[in-house]
Design a protein around this nucleic acid. Structure first.
Lengths: 128, 128
DNA sequence: AATCGGAACGATAATCATTACTGTTTTCGG
DNA sequence: CCGAAAACAGTAATGATTATCGTTCCGATT
């Protein structure tokens, strides 16, 4: 049976409370303010549990570290090559999976769409 | 100045010779048959050089290890949850980047689109 | 309220892909 | 052929993620 733990709840709340897409260690630091002696392993374990339950999203940007996102609705991500931030991009991508199934004959369950470039904020600051 | 090395050429040829999407160590093993004492570091270094030059593609599937692809044309990938293989999916995705630029105001340079599911081959074998 | 088995925890060690370092070898323009 | 730049092989270091293990907590059942 699945059990409630306030560690898991604190981790989820920490993630929900930010609009950014923190790494496991960043979440670890956030949660440490509530539960100072929480273990990094616990953070990882619960992030994976939450991701399996579909409560949060795992994002692999290919830029080093895994990131997590409390927004589970279908959306894409942008990795800024200038500031490194990962932000959300709202784009209707529902058609993509069906198109890919037609093109490949596979049974597709989910997808990950990540854009790389310079975010709007960094474009505003200085030229290229 | 950039210099020619037959290690780099062997690495590129090894990658071109397969339709799969090997990891750095798999490429290392392939190249070892031609250059038995090549170093794994050399493989990594040259894969990154080739990727920077745009001669090959780096693929981060989020399933542990980085993979490489000699096919540089715009296409997507499918990661099979049954057999683990990574295969190509030909899908016109040129519109995506423009749509994302409109939605986000960013200047987008490239993107990565990865599908997760059961590949056609595994669907044929046994039911779900 | 006390009990018990399973789930989760904290601490810590182990993995393992990727990077960094170092002294030596190769490439290639002059 | 010569020398500086680039690349190499070998190896050590890094750092994120995983695994282990003895202990603690949760919650259904008495």
């Amino acid at each position: 049976m699945k059990k409630y733990s306030h560690q898991r709840e604190a981790i989820r709340e920490a993630l929900v409370s930010v609009k950014s897409h923190p790494t496991a260690s960043e979440i670890y630091e956030m949660v440490r303010e509530k539960i100072p002696n929480i273990s990094l392993g616990t953070v990882y374990r619960n992030l994976f549990v939450l991701a399996d339950e579909g409560e949060i999203l795992r994002i692999s940007t290919g830029e080093g570290t895994e990131r997590f996102d409390a927004t589970t609705g279908s959306h894409s991500h942008l990795v800024c090559s200038r500031c490194g931030r990962v932000s959300d991009v709202d784009l209707p991508t529902g058609e993509l999976e069906r198109a890919a199934e037609r093109a490949s004959g596979a049974r597709i369950e989910r997808h990950s769409l990540i854009f790389y470039g310079v975010c709007a904020e960094c474009v505003k600051k200085g030229a290229s």
